[in-house]
Amino acid sequence: MKKVAVIGGGVTGLEAASQLAQMGYTVTVFEKNSAAGGHVSKWDRLFPNRRHSIEVVNELKSYLNGNPAIYLSTAINKVTKKDNRFQLEAYNQVFEADAVLIATGFELFPAERKEEYGYGIYDNVITSAELEGMFKENGYPVKRNGDKPKRLAFIHCVGSRDEKVKRPYCSKVCCVTAVKQAIEVKEAIPEAEIFCLYMDLRMFGPGYEDLYKEAQQKGINFIRGRLSEASELEGSRVLIKTEDTLSSKPLKMSVDMVVLMVGMSPAQGTDELIAALGLQPNKDGFVEITDYHLNPVKTKVDGVFAAGACTGPNNITDSINAARSAAVEIHKYLNNK
């Protein structure tokens, strides 16, 4: 029985592992965190239909029935390839595999690097991920003093499309996430005034544009301009400044809470892993794949495949598709060997 090692137990890794196990391979998933499910398990609800994330994660986790097997809290710190076989080391244990799938996902952009936005300094500047945590915990956002905010601004493209912080690319999912979260805040706090500061609204997926229109109908205000800087006001309110580019004029306003739509960054530690496998990161720091059109899961090293957000920002749909695509490619590879 041929063995496949899947590095990363998020949605991509779990889906690929399940598909490969069904094809008859012995599959082991290595997850560095203590639980499977990746970032999605920390989210409350998903765009576009606001399904609870836990449903998706639980379904994927239910495939872990021995094959695929999963090792939690297990970071692969060394990989070697010899005669078409891979040796993966973690905590002095060695695992063997005939093929490796990199599914290490992404990290959220560290928002404190946009110093001028005051994340980590001002009381009521939070990230989109923290807002999801608040939805999970309370069902609504809370200010640092425990009150509900009455005026909020969602800041798009934090750590995306920004060469200053070496993130020149679009993270794809933040636009629709902001619109989803804005609607959720409006539903939780109907009297809240909500503003989205965007540069473009990249509503590329099914149902996304509808969500945008729904937000407009619910009275959410869209201001085309990037946040230039934030300052803290008395009472821990936040003054934000942008250009209202549709009228070519600076715009300022004070809000109770600022939500930074943090983008997707390459996962820490992925560099060492892919270097050990003989690969290089692409110019944005993600795992380089060889053919973006016809084989978006193949790397330049035989037997090493990559899928999901480790290859660049992805939504769940694309990650699941990539996982299945990787399963097929791995199957083809192992049968032609």
């Binding site: 980590g120 300094i121 001002y122 009381d123």
Partner: peptide
């Protein structure tokens, strides 16, 4: 204001 945030930047 979280003074520790400023100290980190400093």
């Amino acid at each position: 204001m979280k003074p520790e945030g400023k100290k980190r930047i400093w």
